[in-house]
Simulated scan of single mutants.
Amino acid sequence: MMFQKTDANPEEVKNLMKLTFYTQRKQVNQGKTIKYLMEEWPFWFRELGMAVHFKELTGIGLNETLIRNVDLKGERLLNYMNTVCANKSKKLLQAVSKLKVVRGELTGCSEDVKDMVLLLLSYFDEKEDAMFCYVEDTCLAGEVQMDQLYLTPTIVVCGRSCYSSKRFMLSVDRNIVHDNITSFISALCMMFGSYYCFNIHYPSQLASTLEFLQRCFFSINPEKGTKVEKTNTSHLHVKPRVLTLIQELSDYEWRDV
């Protein structure tokens, strides 16, 4: 009933989400479908509700942790990718050049985060379409072709690129759970948070990118274990490669030319 009103008190929503956290976790662990959870807990699929649940679950603030780490490490990562990595890899050099053209004169934290994610996907040679689905900028939730989407959390970009889009949607288990996210950073946080809130493994197509974001930008650093889905082939190679990049970044000192 509160969700159907436009003037719900954010503090009251936050408090009620905390009070019902146990029941939410119980239903996820019982294997309730995303569609069922959307009907039972609509606020969970909004930025505020997901942030509360993620904080209760992990002890980490979703948006604030990402933004703080982008401030601390984002420039270094971008500079490293644009220079050292681009000089070593023809594919990454092409990705850097393409992003400069697409981004144009746009500046700001949000644009830097878009660059970071797209360059990480290129660096790890992972599938962009497993994280992003591009649709027309006027596309409505009911018009999204669900068979184009992965079952895992996917950001639906309403526009030809992340840079031109003014609106994003979030899909989980091929359900559009939020159809009007106006910030890329919010969309990224909700996509990442969904893996934890709904007990979803990282798909092999995005394993390294998500694990890097997890460790470097969302500050989740378990000593052992991984959220990467288990496949017939060993997935142990993911962690060393991610940790190697983190180590190289910590050793890298960028200088103004």
Rank of each mutant, 00 (worst) to 15 (best):
D7I: 02
A8G: 03
A8H: 05
P10Y: 03
E11P: 00
V13P: 01
L16P: 00
M17H: 06
L19T: 04
L19K: 13
T23N: 12
Q24L: 12
R25W: 00
K26Y: 08
K32H: 06
T33N: 02
T33L: 06
I34G: 00
Y36R: 07
L37A: 06
E40R: 15
E40Y: 11
F43E: 01
W44I: 01
W44D: 03
F45I: 04
F45M: 05
M50E: 09
V52S: 05
H53M: 12
F54Y: 15
L57E: 12
T58A: 09
I60V: 12
G61N: 14
N63R: 13
L66D: 04
R68I: 01
R68F: 06
R68C: 04
N69S: 04
V70C: 04
D71S: 13
K73Y: 15
G74N: 02
E75M: 08
R76K: 15
L77Q: 06
L77C: 11
N82W: 01
A86N: 02
N87G: 05
N87D: 15
K88C: 04
K90T: 12
K90W: 02
L92I: 09
L93C: 06
Q94C: 03
A95E: 11
S97V: 00
S97T: 11
K98M: 06
L99H: 03
K100L: 04
V101Q: 12
V102I: 15
E105Y: 05
E105A: 13
T107K: 15
G108D: 05
C109I: 08
C109S: 09
S110I: 00
S110L: 03
E111W: 04
D112A: 09
K114P: 01
M116A: 07
L121V: 08
S122W: 04
S122Q: 09
Y123M: 02
Y123H: 15
E126F: 02
K127N: 10
E128Q: 12
D129P: 00
M131P: 04
C133E: 11
Y134I: 01
T138Y: 14
T138P: 00
L140Q: 14
A141Y: 02
M146Q: 12
Q148Y: 07
T152G: 03
P153I: 09
V156E: 01
R160K: 11
C162I: 07
Y163D: 04
S164C: 12
K166H: 12
M169I: 01
L170V: 09
V172L: 12
V172D: 03
R174K: 12
R174E: 02
I176T: 06
I181Y: 07
I181K: 04
S183L: 07
S183N: 10
S183M: 05
I185P: 05
S186R: 11
M190A: 09
S194D: 05
Y195H: 10
C197D: 08
N199R: 11
N199L: 07
I200A: 09
I200E: 08
I200V: 14
S204W: 05
S204Y: 10
A207Q: 09
S208H: 06
L210Q: 10
E211H: 03
E211K: 10
C216S: 15
C216N: 13
N221V: 06
N221W: 03
P222S: 13
P222Q: 14
P222E: 14
K227M: 15
V228T: 15
T231N: 08
N232W: 12
N232L: 13
L236C: 12
K239I: 10
R241G: 14
R241M: 10
V242K: 09
L243R: 08
L243A: 06
T244N: 14
L245H: 07
S250K: 13
E253P: 00
W254G: 01
V257S: 13
